[in-house]
Simulated scan of single mutants.
Amino acid sequence: MSYVVDFATVSATGLESSPVAEALAGLRANEARYFKTKYDHVFTVEPADEAKETVDWVHGILADERDLTIASRPLQASAFQVENIRMAYVFYESGLSINVMYTLDEGGKRAVGFKLSDGMEVPEELGTFKFARQKSKLAGTIRGSYFVIKKEH
């Protein structure tokens, strides 16, 4: 069942098994606010087991581009298009959020972003990435990193 993420009233619905559920809910709400403000898009997530195609696409890009496998269990995912950009999000039990921004135009920007919830340690599989910090009213301190997608997916 899909869930519309409310950034006015942050809820950990669907994220309860995470040890940092409240921080992950804030991170998810932060993303929802961004897409509502910038694109007037309502951010909706599904349980990961119902969004297998999205999770597989994100995991395929990670494996193909950087030989990465995420150890944590995916809890929720979202896939949508805003303007000419295909977006996908996967939220993990550990507190990790991965997003793929894939511009559909030839030569457009394409990247994978990693965000860590407040209180989450950097996962071993992402230890080679440098993370920058940003403050968020909804999510506390978010640490983020990314890499550019080089291949077609």
Rank of each mutant, 00 (worst) to 15 (best):
G113M: 02
V45C: 02
V10D: 10
Y39T: 05
V100W: 01
F91Y: 15
S72E: 09
D6M: 03
A79Y: 05
A29E: 08
L126M: 12
M87G: 02
T128H: 05
I98G: 00
D118M: 12
V148Q: 11
D67A: 10
E106Q: 13
Y39S: 03
A21C: 11
G144W: 02
T141A: 07
L68R: 03
I142W: 00
R33W: 01
V45A: 03
K130L: 14
A23E: 12
L104Y: 04
A111F: 10
F114Y: 11
A21Y: 02
E16N: 13
K52F: 05
E83K: 10
F114N: 08
S145V: 12
L15Q: 10
L126I: 13
I85N: 04
A79R: 15
S78T: 03
S17P: 03
L96G: 03
H59W: 04
G60H: 01
A71K: 10
T69D: 00
F129G: 07
M87W: 14
R33N: 09
G60Y: 01
T44I: 15
M87L: 11
I85P: 00
K135P: 00
F43G: 07
E22I: 09
E50G: 09
L104V: 02
L116P: 01
T69M: 02
L24M: 13
F129S: 08
I85H: 02
A8R: 09
S18D: 11
G144A: 11
Y3F: 13
Q134V: 07
L68P: 04
K135D: 09
A29R: 07
L24A: 15
P47K: 11
E65W: 02
Q134K: 13
Y3E: 06
A51T: 06
E53W: 01
L62C: 04
W57T: 02
E121F: 01
A8V: 07
D118Y: 07
K130R: 14
E53T: 10
G108R: 03
H59C: 01
K36G: 04
Y34M: 12
A12P: 14
R66F: 00
A79N: 12
S18W: 08
P47L: 07
F35K: 02
L104M: 14
A8T: 09
G119H: 12
G119V: 14
V148D: 11
Y92K: 04
G108F: 01
K137G: 13
T44Y: 01
R133Y: 04
E16K: 12
